[in-house]
């Protein structure tokens, strides 16, 4: 049954998402996660003293044959690493330019995985700008689920292509986060792979939308510079080597409030990615913001 607000706004999805987050804010604590930590404590350092929200997770490369099995295993490892909430997107296997059928199949995998623990799992709808109508349909379908909080744009098409506009408009209307994978590969990007500079062009056209610059462009010294002037773009830490200095530069140039933690697990270890924030020479308050507060705030804002 719709609430009064939903009836007036006609925007059930976004309102539900805010309710969902408000509930989750008061949900799991790190202490409850730590109760699940394995019996062998072999390392001389501990994971973050702060609870972690991991904004970038995948089901691929995780043990299991079904979404439920994979997700259950994934959460067990998340428990070990102090991660209390995960955001998953894309199913498996990875397909560079998914057909409408594959989009639906992979979004279904994610929807099934979310049911394993709806309070701990959010997700993005996987879309492909080469199939605009199918992507819009998938957004309509998936946003019915209150835990769907954003869209995922990967490497099928560059984000400065005009075909993307209807997808971004819909995401904006749905108050959804727009996550764009970005890299600036010295070895050369894929044909449809976007750079942070191309994301800037998109963000300029939609100044009210909130974008996440996935992977910080890989070459983070360039990615951070590229997005620096645009406050509607957040930088995300996932999926590159744990190279020292990355998070320090991001905080210095963007402010800690524009830096969001993500791991890119299971392709990456939680450990290497958490170390980027945990090991950085920044304040404890900045670490707390990056690990959880900024992302929560972004979702609430949207």
């Amino acid at each position: 049954m719709k609430t009064d607000v939903e009836r007036i706004s006609g925007d059930a999805g976004s309102c539900c998402r805010r309710d969902f987050l408000a509930t989750t804010l008061a949900g799991l604590t790190l202490a409850s996660c730590n109760q699940l930590i394995g019996k062998e404590d072999v390392s001389p350092i501990n994971y973050s003293a702060f609870p972690i929200w991991d904004s970038h997770c995948h089901l691929s490369s995780i043990f299991g044959n079904s979404p439920e099995e994979k997700m259950t295993h994934f959460l067990k490892i998340a428990d070990v690493t102090g991660i209390e909430h995960v955001v998953i997107y894309m199913g498996w296997p990875f397909v560079l330019d998914p057909t409408p059928e594959i989009l639906k199949k992979q979004n279904d995998q994610v929807l099934r995985a979310m049911k394993v623990n709806p309070d701990r799992i959010s997700a993005y709808v996987y879309v492909n700008p080469n199939h605009v109508d199918a992507s819009l349909n998938e957004m309509d379908r998936c946003f019915e689920n209150k835990g769907m909080v954003g869209i995922k744009l990967w490497v099928a098409s560059r984000c400065d292509e005009t075909s993307l506009a209807p997808i971004i408009r819909k995401a904006e209307k749905q108050n959804a986060v727009i996550f764009q994978h970005t890299w600036i590969k010295t070895t050369g990007n894929l044909k449809g792979e976007s750079t942070p500079m191309q994301l800037v062009e998109l963000a300029k056209k939609f100044p009210e939308a909130k974008f996440i610059c996935g992977h910080a462009g890989g070459v983070w010294e360039l990615g951070i510079r590229a997005i620096r002037p645009y406050s509607n773009i957040f930088v995300e830490t996932a999926g590159s080597s744990p190279t020292a200095g990355f998070v320090e530069m991001a905080v210095r140039e963007l402010g800690a409030e524009r830096v969001i933690f993500g791991s890119d697990a299971g392709g990456r270890s939680f450990a290497s990615q958490i170390s980027k924030v945990l090991g950085a020479d920044i304040s404890e308050q900045d670490k707390k913001m990056i690990f959880k507060d900024n992302y929560q705030k972004l979702l609430m804002m949207n």
């Binding site: 350092i45 690493t81 020292a244 450990a271 290497s272 980027k276």
Partner: peptide, 16 residues
């Protein structure tokens, strides 16, 4: 070159 916490936390993550 890498944050040393990366290798240390990998040991913990793997629950050896």
């Amino acid at each position: 070159f890498f944050y040393i916490e990366s290798a240390l936390l990998k040991m913990k993550e793997s629950q050896l």
